[in-house]
């Protein structure tokens, strides 16, 4: 039994069909003390059923702490979309989702996957020009709730 309605599945299938590049979702999880890790995994598991362009790669933040640290992840659940460049090297999107991607966060996750999967940026030329001027490490944290 899926978490998505047949209508939503169809919409997502159509959206994902526009992806030109495969995306892997690194799913950071832990076995103990993680109330929403299972929910997060269940939500993510819906996506590869809708397209062959999305795969899930589970990483335990306790057992594989070094790998988690490389992505700046110190808690679970967390999701990081990555892709492979033409040389086959893993490329970090530098987009991180902390917490189960349910409700509104799910919409944001789908948008992020589409972007990493080759959809053109929705940023205006003016915004992109502004962004190009950033030359030091910037961290942006957007706090949201599922509803």
């Amino acid at each position: 039994m899926g978490l998505l309605s047949p209508a939503d599945q169809e919409k997502l299938r159509e959206a994902f069909s526009e992806m030109t590049r495969a995306v892997r979702l690194l799913f950071f999880t832990q076995t103990l003390d993680c109330e929403t890790c299972l929910t997060a995994r269940q939500i993510l598991d819906e996506l590869p059923l809708l397209t062959d362009k999305i795969a899930i790669d589970e990483i335990n933040v306790v057992i594989d702490a070094d790998r988690a640290k490389r992505f700046g992840i110190d808690r679970a659940p967390a999701v990081v979309p990555v892709w492979r460049d033409e040389q086959g090297a893993e490329q970090d999107s530098r987009i991180r989702f902390l917490g189960a991607p349910s409700g509104y966060e799910f919409v944001s996750l789908v948008q992020a996957v589409m972007l990493v999967g080759g959809r053109p940026s929705i940023l205006s030329a003016a915004s992109l020009a502004r962004l190009a001027a950033v030359d030091k490490p910037v961290t942006m944290q957007v706090f949201a709730t599922p509803t």
Partner: peptide, 25 residues
Amino acid sequence: MAFANPHITAYAVEATEFPDLVRRY
């Protein structure tokens, strides 16, 4: 924005799950 510039890292934080971050910020 993070995807447009390699200097930027973006976090979407589910506020209800991480009260420590909610307090800190």
